[in-house]
């Protein structure tokens, strides 16, 4: 716990200072935080032994909600857009969750993938509504009623996102230590006993699923704001796969993991853009295999020296 706080505080300090020293990094770091938030949602599900290859759905849904509201000049204000879009994602997750929490492992992962692919296809095909593959532009909204210049806007959004990410991480950490969080882990270790405690594993997983949808939705809302543009690609399986990659890369041992993973992911992406622009997902695939086989607790695990789970003899 103490170590988690130290790593987290170190990361936070670095993130607070960095954009001041090098303004070019603001947007990249914001993107990393957004993906970290989505990966945090994946971490919550991984604690229950479940993986979703479809959380791009919530990321994209929230981003499109922002885009539609912004286009309609309806609540064209960050402080309205972000909460509304996040809540909308949470609602969608609740709806989808009613169905997918009945399933585990393979079915859970693949049903999430299938649903996100349907959404992706609809975004592409319903051209007249969604703008098809070209997506939609998101005009820059006001922030607390003030219209800001681009650079200022980006800096503010970064710090707001950082604050939200810290709150989300602390909240998730707290939840994971609570009885409900332990019940969530119990789905992974022994669902039979959980049922014989009189606890509904579906309800437990449902709560976690909605939480993961909210986290991905928060990330998606901010992405729409900083990139000023949304495309169906946000819902594509590649995106969902990246969230899983980030969660595994960072490690699921602590809530700092996904954010470490997201920063590392941006660094890898930067190098890949130069050295392997055509094959960068293959690079991710190879790294994923390396992590799974050689560092199953991810970066966070490497930093805290945690032994792989299940070998604690």
């Amino acid at each position: 716990m103490a170590r988690q706080l130290i790593i987290g505080a170190g990361l936070l300090a670095a993130l607070i200072i960095f954009p001041l020293l090098s303004p070019w990094s603001t947007v990249i770091l914001t993107v990393a935080l957004c993906e970290g938030l989505a990966a945090l949602g994946i971490l919550v599900l991984l604690r229950a032994g479940q993986v979703s290859f479809g959380h791009g759905l919530y990321f994209a849904f929230s981003a499109y909600v922002v885009a539609f509201m912004a286009a309609a000049r309806f609540g064209h204000e960050v402080l309205i857009l972000v909460p509304v879009a996040t809540a909308a994602s949470g609602l969608l997750a609740a709806l989808v969750g009613l169905f997918v929490v009945r399933y585990r492992a393979i079915f859970f992962g693949m049903l999430n993938l299938a649903i996100s692919m349907v959404f992706f296809s609809l975004l592409e095909k319903l051209f007249s509504i969604t703008g098809g593959a070209d997506g939609k532009r998101v005009p820059r909204p006001t922030l607390a009623g003030i219209s800001l210049e681009r650079a200022e806007f980006e800096l503010w959004i970064f710090y707001i996102t950082l604050g939200l990410a810290v709150l989300a991480a602390l909240g998730v950490a707290r939840y994971l230590l609570s009885p409900g969080g332990k019940a969530l882990e119990a789905i992974k270790s022994n669902e039979t006993r959980l049922e014989y405690l009189g606890v509904s594993s579906r309800k437990v997983l449902f709560g976690a699923y909605v939480l993961s949808g909210l986290l991905a939705g928060l990330g998606g809302a901010v992405i729409a704001l900083v990139s000023g543009h949304v495309t169906p690609e946000l819902a594509y399986w590649v995106r969902s796969g990246e969230f899983v990659f980030i969660a595994i890369l960072g490690g699921v041992g602590g809530v700092v993991g996904p954010f470490l993973g997201a920063l590392m992911f941006q660094i890898i992406r930067g190098y890949a853009a130069v050295y392997a622009p055509e094959t960068w997902h293959a690079v991710l695939g190879v790294m994923l295999l390396v992590i799974i086989f050689f560092a199953p607790n991810g970066l966070y695990g490497l930093m805290t020296g945690r032994k792989p789970a299940g070998t604690g003899q």
Partner: peptide, 25 residues
């Protein structure tokens, strides 16, 4: 049928949480 990765204490406290319905996050 126990939660193998958890401590004995956690196993029992989870059962007591289930009985008392103490699910506050």
């Amino acid at each position: 049928q126990l939660f193998l990765e958890n401590t004995v204490i956690e196993n029992l406290l989870l059962a007591l949480s289930a009985r008392e319905r103490t699910w506050s996050p």
